[in-house]
Design a protein around this nucleic acid. Structure first.
Lengths: 177, 177
DNA sequence: AGATTATGTCAGTACTATTGACGTAATTTC
DNA sequence: GAAATTACGTCAATAGTACTGACATAATCT
């Protein structure tokens, strides 16, 4: 039954436009860009029987070694039940280890192993290559602009999470957390 | 058992750095930005019992009214089985209608209804607001730069898909498709 | 001592995606 | 015109990621 059912609305044959000031160009570009951005690591992960969730955990454990389970949940914005399976697999395959928190022994500090560090780098490499290629004709100014745009796209309340990462990235110490 | 199992690797306590020229700053920003970018429509979709997949279908049906099922599958890069449930729900709820293809009667041309157009706009509005806010202090130059960056992040083979959309967006006609 | 916190785990469910197989109608090819 | 191909739909089974709710344990705080 290819045609409309009795009470169905009439088809609109004109494409949606920038009416109402909707920025469809960037909305769509963002979708395509992110889809392809994640497709590179996805292929590598498949060889390990891992998925995107493993990648995210591995990434943040490498970026902030020693973060606790609660901190990781807060960064990923998922529930502990969602994290459980993924984290267990990463621990069982010796990509991540847990150490008892020194100050609070209830806490589990998460660290990458050499194996986990290597995999994180292998996953990041094609993504970094893609970014590098996208900015190849750009200078520092353009790069900063893209960074500023992406940061401005993040919910203001959550920008602190990123700043921590950036601080670590640029080699600053950060007291305690 | 918080401590390591017998054969587990040693924990690496140093954060991963920009060694090997890996661009962790933008990798991370992209993750956070996309997460929050999709969270706005997700909340609206929940009221309809829809998910992100419904949003994507609705978006492209509104952007390219009359596209066929095969074209939609190609844009979304999913299988027809994945599309089936989502598309059926959108049709059953009168957001999308199917018309028999005029040239080839095997094809199903997909069109939004008034209801589907309205929902697509409602979903796009907060995303567009976010983009607008992120670019608020920027001029046309910066905007173009961000667009160019995002486009360059897409696989070259797939950029054609986007160009069609951009052409329509800027009001150009496009012959047939 | 009792409350709270950090973590782990069990059970059930939902959404999105996959592969593989099969069916039907329409078009193309020989 | 018969056969092959194409466009689409559908059934079945599976996987990955997420959710809510409930309960358990150990450690810390009040």
């Amino acid at each position: 039954m290819p045609d409309k059912s009795p009470a169905a609305g009439k088809p609109i044959r004109t494409a949606i436009t920038t009416e109402d000031g909707i920025d469809f160009a960037i909305i769509e570009l963002f979708f395509f860009a992110y889809r392809d951005f994640t497709s590179d690591p996805d292929q590598i992960l498949a060889d390990y029987g891992f998925g995107r969730a493993h990648h995210r955990v591995l990434h943040f454990v490498n970026r902030r070694p020693g973060l606790t389970v609660a901190e990781l949940l807060d960064v990923l914005k998922i529930t502990k039940q969602s994290l459980a399976r993924v984290l267990k697999q990463l621990i069982d395959t010796d990509h991540v280890v847990q150490l008892q928190g020194p100050r609070d022994r209830r806490q589990r500090e998460l660290y990458p192993t050499a194996k986990g560090r290597a995999l994180a780098l292998a996953l990041a490499r094609p993504q970094s290559r893609r970014i590098h290629a996208a900015l190849k004709d750009s200078g520092a100014t353009e790069r900063t602009l893209v960074e500023r745009f992406l940061e401005a796209m993040v919910n203001p309340e959550l920008r602190a999470q990123i700043d921590v990462g950036s601080a670590k990235l640029s080699g600053k110490s950060h007291g305690e957390q």
